[in-house]
Computed example of a mutant assay.
Amino acid sequence: MELKLTLNGRAVAASVEADTLLIDFLRAQGCLSVKRGCETANCGLCTVLMDGTPVLSCSVLALRAAGHHVQTLEGLQEEAADFTAFIADQGAEQCGFCNPGFVMNTVALLRENPDPTDDEIRAYLAGNLCRCSGYEGQLRGIRAYLDHKKGRG
């Protein structure tokens, strides 16, 4: 079946099988930031933005993305660069495996709510599993970034 979508700002057309998962399609397109973790839609490692909304690409058929705009971390480098340094500064990217999912969800959060409370940040990032940091480092990093943007940091 023919799949046409916009991937990181460029038109993409490819032939896919009806049961191809979006994660597999994206990785075949060179988007290696999209990682396979639990394969049960529980860890957040495969998070991408479809039309600006976070989706778990391990639980979406590629053909469901037809006609949509899909963004991966590869397509959000400039937007993400602003706050990833703050997350790293807090020691929150120890092994880095979960980082793309956190970054994708943080981008979506800040687009939706540019001034979230700590509880709103925690709620938005709740679906991302991290085995190294305990999540507080990510929260501190995002908060430090937001404070810096407001001139308080």
Rank of each mutant, 00 (worst) to 15 (best):
R36Q: 14
R111F: 13
S57N: 05
V16T: 09
V70T: 06
E17Q: 14
A28L: 12
Y145I: 00
A144L: 08
A11D: 07
R122K: 03
S57C: 00
L45Y: 13
D24Y: 12
E17N: 11
Y135R: 01
D118E: 15
L125T: 02
C95M: 14
F83V: 00
Q71G: 06
V34D: 14
R111N: 04
F102H: 02
G30S: 12
P100I: 10
N42K: 15
V16G: 07
P100Q: 10
L7H: 04
A66V: 11
R152H: 12
D24Q: 04
N105M: 10
D19V: 09
E2S: 02
H148S: 08
C98P: 04
V48L: 05
R111H: 10
H68N: 15
V70P: 03
L21A: 12
H68A: 14
R27I: 06
A11L: 10
S57Q: 01
I23A: 01
F102A: 04
L5E: 06
G9A: 08
V48D: 00
Q71H: 05
E136T: 07
S133L: 15
I142K: 00
E78S: 12
V34W: 15
L32C: 09
Q138P: 03
T84P: 13
A80T: 01
Q77M: 07
T40V: 06
